[in-house]
Amino acid sequence: MKNTTTKKWIISLSMVAILPACVTINIYFPAAAAEKAADKIIDEVWQLKQGQDAPADKPVEPTPADAPTDAPAK
């Protein structure tokens, strides 16, 4: 009886020791977290804010004023 109890304890202890170790080694790519992070960055870059459907850039034809400033100027 006493023997089995000790055995059980040894097994459980070793599991406790091994389980986290296993997971620490196998860090998989956290897809959901990555999507959340990507969304946050895209919202910032495209300046998309909740409850504000029309962002700064309306669909307009490019005009010289919109044109990149680093075009050959002279």
Partner: peptide, 19 residues
């Protein structure tokens, strides 16, 4: 003990939140 070890494991994975 097993539950505790699972929580520990989860904590390790959640550390990489990419933000």
């Amino acid at each position: 003990l097993v539950i505790v070890s699972i929580f520990t494991a989860n904590w390790v994975a959640a550390a990489a939140d990419l933000e």
